[in-house]
């Protein structure tokens, strides 16, 4: 495998990967990097509220990105917000990936009416925009971290199911699957041990780009007030909080969390694009043929 070397040939993608690593680092070590814990009310000073970027805090450090209406350091808020946004995006994508993969594999391997039923469902769902489906689910279920994750899983699984089914249908007719059948292996073993590893590459590409989608969607839902609760503020909620102050010229409360969101999404997309080029199954089969 020279996939890593292949990946490294694109300088933009490598830069994006480095940026992404930095973002992950900031999210993981938010408690150590942040000048204050933005959700420990004892550390907040209301006298420091709505300060412009670069102002000095009463506690001695500098608010490099300003403060919000609670006197919360925006930089710390962004570090903690990144945590929530990335965690929700990654967890929902992983669950959706597992679910969609299983359903797609079943559809491809079973064929017949099972396949037809599942694919009709997938088509039906994909004909509606994900934001609409997520809005409906959250309108019904209410707020909460778990509900947001469930909504994001429901929105995403169909993409994976379709991708997996498409690839698995091709793999199913290859000789190694026939060989496994001749060995009298059971269907579950053939599907999960033989076909699954071969359908993974295109799936990884879809998943990478989907994490970015999930993060953007979660931010949008939180902005609308239907996503994360106030106790688990994601970047979307931070931006939403700043909306009210935007008109009075206090741009930083919305602006900086938005920039953090933007950089995260663009970095993930660039890495995903490069991964697609490297792992492109069509190109790969073209070279090996």
């Amino acid at each position: 495998m020279n996939a890593a070397a292949d990946f490294a040939r694109d300088r933009i993608a490598v830069t994006a990967l480095a940026v992404l690593a930095l973002i992950l680092f900031a999210a993981f070590f938010a408690p150590f990097l942040s000048p204050q814990n933005p959700y420990d009310l004892a550390q907040l000073d209301l006298l420091d509220s709505k300060l412009a970027p670069g102002a000095r805090a009463g506690a001695g450090f500098t608010y490099w990105l300003g403060t919000d209406d609670q006197g919360r350091d925006m930089l710390s808020g962004i570090f903690y917000g990144l945590r929530t946004s990335l965690a929700v995006g990654a967890i929902s994508t992983l669950v959706a990936l597992a679910l969609g993969m299983a359903i797609g594999l079943v559809a491809a391997y079973a064929g017949g009416w099972v396949d037809a039923l599942i694919m009709r469902l997938v088509d039906l769902q994909l004909s509606f925009p994900s934001i609409l489906i997520a809005l409906v689910l959250l309108a019904v279920a209410g707020q909460g971290v778990d509900k947001v994750v469930i909504a994001l899983v429901v929105v995403q699984w169909a993409y994976y199911a379709r991708t997996v089914r498409g690839t698995a249908l091709v793999e199913k007719h290859k000789e190694y699957v026939d060989a496994a059948r001749v060995m009298a292996f059971g269907a579950p073993r053939i599907v999960f041990r033989h076909i699954l590893p071969n359908v993974l590459p295109p799936l990884i590409v879809v998943a990478t780009v989907q994490v970015a989608h999930a993060i953007a969607l979660e931010a949008t839902l939180s902005f609308l007030g239907l996503g994360m609760p106030i106790t688990e503020p994601s970047l979307g909620l931070l931006i939403s909080n700043g909306f009210a102050h935007l008109i009075s010229g206090r741009y930083w409360i919305s602006f900086f969390p938005g920039i953090a969101l933007l950089i995260t999404i663009v970095a993930i997309n660039l890495v995903g694009d490069r991964l697609r080029d490297v792992l492109n199954p069509r190109l790969a089969s073209h070279y090996s043929a």
Partner: peptide, 8 residues
């Protein structure tokens, strides 16, 4: 344009 969140 694809990457920018609409609301922001």
């Amino acid at each position: 344009g694809f990457s920018l969140p609409t609301f922001w």
